[in-house]
């Protein structure tokens, strides 16, 4: 597992998200109203919608395509829907944000 610096907490609006491009695909990094940071795969388990574009409420996001609600903590669909996205470990050091990627080097090499 490798930690990558991705920028500062201030780069993400509260109740919003930004994307990070990685060799493993796009990752959505969320900042909640109370400054918690979460990272998940930017792909809804339903039809692949970009979750980073969704509406953030509490510790969940509503997918912009068909309104699935995904928990930012577990990556699981909430409510009646079933499915999950991968969650990515996040570390917050002061304002600076880091995400951990698995064995990316091996994969990309």
């Amino acid at each position: 597992m490798t930690w990558f610096a991705i920028g500062s907490m201030k780069d993400i609006p509260r109740r919003g998200a930004r994307c990070v491009q990685t060799p493993q695909g796009r990752i959505a990094v969320f900042r909640t109203a109370d400054d918690q940071i979460f990272a998940i795969e930017d792909q809804c388990p339903h039809k692949g919608g970009p979750l980073s574009q969704g509406l953030v409420h509490g510790a969940a996001v509503t997918c912009p395509l068909h309104n699935w609600v995904i928990s930012l903590e577990t990556g699981k669909a909430l409510g009646a829907d079933e499915g999950a996205v991968r969650t990515i470990p996040v570390n917050v050091e002061g304002e600076r944000l880091f995400i951990a990627l698995d064995a990316i080097a091996d994969k990309a090499a």
Binding site: T2, F4, A5, I6, G7, D11, I12, P13, R18, C19, V20, Q21, T22, P23, Q24, R26, V29, I99, L101, I104, A105, K107, A108, A109
Partner: peptide, 15 residues
């Protein structure tokens, strides 16, 4: 502006 750009691109250089 932030809306239209990725926040970061990581992993490629490390590889």
């Amino acid at each position: 502006k932030h809306e239209f750009k990725p926040m970061a691109t990581v992993g490629y250089a490390a590889a």
